[in-house]
Nucleic acid binder design. Structure first.
Lengths: 218, 218
DNA sequence: CAATTATTCAATAGATTTATTGAATAATTT
DNA sequence: AAATTATTCAATAAATCTATTGAATAATTG
């Protein structure tokens, strides 16, 4: 293989991977799958995609080593191919959010809107878990919680939060979290709970970032 | 801003960035710029692109915060926007080359073709620089060497190597390097020099990786 | 085994990306 | 000021990507 051929083959392959990533709906699907596997139906429910379209996007990602699938009964469950991919994906996001002015602005506006500026970092949270008696609240849908969550967290899905208010102690400081930076469930939880007089803040990042951090420091 | 709007804005922005990356020629340009700034002419010379086309690709990357430009005289010089971007780019490459079977295969075939299997890692090189009296050979074009190189390296551009053979000592062990994994200059140098009886190996990675490593460990 | 369900396939039209062409611009040299 | 040089602009055609539609498939249930 000559030098030129080699380079062309590498750049072609690399750009195929990037093309498979470069679509807003596929990014949203990746974000969803970063909490655990989902059926096509599950993906259709939380996106605006039609069934056939969602299936197509998933196939694009499958043939480009981004997701994998397994069949069980009627259902086909998709998940991210491995944690290495998740790590790369999060590097990209981190770069985009911190270096691209447009995205930084959107991100900051969102955070201000939610008055959640005093969010807790992962490091702070680790500290608080050790030293304080806090209540760590996972507000994602319970399926996601069951699939994996931060040790010690309690599952109260956002849509059940209002009903379960009485069972939550007002004495403890509450930290709410959901998925990565694009997940707004935690913001909603903070808003609702602080309106009700709870002492509550959100985790700056989310479960996937926490998971990655644990993997990296092992 | 509602949750849905926020998500859409983020995913759109992120996918724009990825779209700007997802093209083989633009990847090749990024690779070139990872050694230092280049004029449009410089890029046209080492790619198969026409002038207008190269300019267009550069503009796509400029408007997506991947490269920046400055004008000097007739020339417009482009360079990567910052080291954070370079770091993300290298994460992507590393993932692609190690996790995507197709690319891994191409990469390995290339390495075998060049019989360069006993390449030296960056760690090994650091060790050798300290403890052995090696000759570190930078075979990139001299402009790139001048723009930045590994401390202690000697510049002998690949196209001048044949003529300068006499001035190279046969006593020292030689380590040749060029750019990242896609650069084949070092492979060519190893082939030529070992045919001439020199004791020579190549650096597994290249100058951009070395540079990133230094930055990361500072 | 017929009906149901979740998913995929295949065809198509509209949108976007890309390379090419030739003209336009802006800085420099003559 | 005219000519030259490096780059960009604008228009276009070809290639690729995307969403939609309706039919096909494969596993399960009645």
């Amino acid at each position: 293989m000559k030098g030129r051929e080699f380079k062309d083959a590498m750049y072609d392959g690399l750009s195929k991977l990037l093309k498979a990533l470069a679509n807003p709906y596929r990014l949203e699907i990746i974000e969803m799958l970063s909490q655990g596997e989902k059926s096509v139906e599950g993906i259709v429910q939380t996106t605006n995609l039609s069934f056939a379209n969602a299936s197509q996007h998933l196939q694009v990602m499958k043939s480009n080593n981004i997701v994998k699938s397994r069949k069980e009964g009627h259902y086909v469950y998709y998940s991210l191919i491995n944690d290495d991919f998740l790590s790369v994906y999060q590097h990209i996001i981190k770069y985009a959010v911190s270096e691209i002015a447009e995205l930084e602005k959107i991100m900051n506006r969102q955070r201000e809107d939610n008055k959640s500026l005093n969010a807790v970092s992962i490091e702070e949270l680790e500290n608080m878990i050790e030293n304080k008696n806090i209540l760590l609240l996972d507000v994602r849908p319970s399926v996601e919680f069951e699939f994996g969550h931060i040790t010690g967290a309690v599952s109260v899905p956002m849509n059940e939060l209002m009903e379960q208010l009485k069972s939550i102690s007002k004495d403890k400081e509450i930290i709410a979290y959901c998925r990565g930076p694009f997940c707004v469930l935690a913001d909603e939880a903070v808003k609702l709970l602080s309106e009700q007089g709870f002492n509550v803040r959100r985790l700056d990042e989310g479960y996937p970032e926490w998971k990655m951090k644990q993997l990296e420091t092992n």
